[in-house]
Design a protein around this nucleic acid. Structure first.
Length: 467
DNA sequence: GGAACTCGCCAC
DNA sequence: AAACGTGGCGAGTTCC
């Protein structure tokens, strides 16, 4: 069978159109509340000052100060590392790429030294103040920022962003997300809208490996891959879906096992991450009674695991090793075989081709070779929709503006009287047309939309019923 | 005094 | 046998 794919020329034309569409979005930009940014910067500076005032009085700081040749600097992680690991001779919980004792949040938290908690708090506040608020102010012109989107910087042919980077504004950390996103708005009276593809990398991976079990998970709305993995990992039965801890355990399975496995991680890293996810680690290599999330009233997860013969990280790791084997050999064997075949093909040819006509060459690891096509192609779905939407919106002379993009999501500025119409166009273009015009998309695609009220910030978006 | 590097941390 | 993919950016540090 002849495999018809877009050519490199098509890929070039596609990115050329993408650059133009992104450029129009950059020109639009989004509104920032400059006064808010400046006020919060000052408030953060005050809080930092107060924390440091106390910190400078501590024995911890004075010892550090004495042991450092030259000017002491509390922003210097190399000084902190020197003090903790050379002067105080603490054992580094982990090391960096270059073999130095790590001073990241996870490493520092393991010490339970109150002064270090202050330093971590300061680090977090400075991140918000200096990377985000300061970045917005720096790039602001007449109350608008114009984030840049690039198509020429990424090995996988994804996009990147800068000045400011619109693609890494805090979201998971509630405090940081609120402070940063409260600065950003649609035009006065308009809705800020964010529409994203659901699990797009999982869908696109299925288009490559065509694993029937994975396709079933995608097609059946009643099925739940992460829920199933949580059941298997934590010895839960079906009834457990109604218990309060289920949500925690499901997201532990999703973020501690399933996604890392898809990126090429292994059980040895998954087990400690999972144990953190339910609250059994890192303090205890062996867990006692009454630890972790409550599985049901008076039955904690540590007790539940003990009942199933898992009393320590060691036995939990063995358990996860078996689950990994099952995951790739029983649950998704076709995906597993595809990874093997794909890797062999790369080794034979020296490059990999995507459905979208792009070719990645150069030295790649096993994980690279299987991750790149999925990551790139997933983004190309978004880009295809972005280009199409840009055309449709202009042709229809709508006042709605495309203003940015975050790999699998599009951000728009929408007047109230266009909201309903735009939500229909989004569904039509991002789902119906995308699938119709790409014959290699063999699974259903889905989108979700969040909308802010008129005049509300990016922090206030709520789910929107698209119908 | 700037380029290049390291580290940490934000996003998907 | 080996062992998590892609970026940007601020601050500190080192090199020239």
């Amino acid at each position: 069978m002849i495999d018809i794919k877009p050519s490199k020329a098509d890929a070039y034309k596609f990115f050329h159109e993408g650059v133009l569409a992104f450029n129009r979005a950059e020109e639009q930009g989004l509104r920032i509340d400059l006064e808010y940014c400046e006020r919060v910067q000052k408030e953060l500076s005050e809080e930092i000052k107060t924390i440091l005032k106390g910190f400078y009085q501590t024995r911890f700081y004075k010892d550090w100060n004495r042991s450092t040749k030259g000017k002491p600097n509390i922003n210097s992680n190399s000084q902190l590392g020197h003090y903790l690991y050379k002067v105080k001779k603490l054992e580094p919980p982990k090391t960096t790429e270059t073999g130095q004792g790590s001073t990241d949040e996870e490493a520092l938290e393991s010490f339970d030294i109150p002064e270090i908690k202050d330093l971590l708090r300061v680090r977090k506040l400075k991140k918000i103040r200096d990377t985000y608020l300061k970045g917005f102010i720096k790039e602001q012109v007449d109350g608008y920022i114009h984030p840049n989107f690039n198509l020429h910087t990424v090995r996988t042919f994804r996009s990147s962003g800068n000045s400011p980077n619109f693609q890494n504004i805090p979201k998971r950390d509630k405090e940081a997300a609120e402070v940063c996103r409260k600065a950003l708005f649609a035009r006065p009276g308009n809705h800020l809208v964010e529409v994203d593809y659901s699990s797009i990398e999982v869908c696109i991976s299925a288009c490559y490996h065509k694993d029937p079990n994975m396709i079933k998970y995608i097609e059946d709305p009643e099925s739940d891959m992460h829920g199933d993995m949580a059941e298997q990992i934590f010895f839960l039965d079906k009834l457990d879906k109604s218990i309060p801890g289920h949500k925690t355990l499901r997201s532990a399975a999703k973020n501690g096992f399933v996604f890392p496995q898809f990126y090429g991680d292994y059980y040895g890293n998954n087990a400690p991450a999972l144990a953190c996810g339910w609250g059994g680690l890192p303090e205890n290599k062996r867990w006692g009674k009454g630890q972790g999330v409550e599985r049901e009233p008076d039955l904690f997860l540590s007790d539940h695991l003990r009942k199933n013969g898992i009393r320590s990280l060691r036995s939990f790791t063995e358990h996860i090793k078996k689950i990994e084997h099952h995951f790739w050999n029983q649950r998704f064997p076709v995906y597993n075989q595809w990874k093997e075949d794909w890797w062999n093909e790369y080794q034979a040819k020296g490059y990999i081709d995507m459905y979208t006509g792009f070719r990645c060459s150069g030295i790649m690891s096993r994980n690279d070779a299987t991750n790149y096509p999925i990551q790139g192609t997933a983004f190309h779905c978004l880009l295809w929709a972005f280009i199409k939407l840009d055309k449709v919106i202009r042709k229809m002379r709508l006042k709605t503006r495309l203003i940015g993009q975050i790999h699998d999501a599009i951000v728009l500025d929408v007047p109230p009287d266009e909201l309903k119409k735009v939500s229909k166009i989004l569904k039509k273009v991002m789902v119906d047309l995308l699938v119709k015009e790409h014959d290699w998309i063999i699974v259903p695609m889905a989108i979700e939309m969040d909308v802010g009220g008129p005049g509300e910030s990016w922090n206030e978006l709520k789910p929107y019923e698209m119908k």
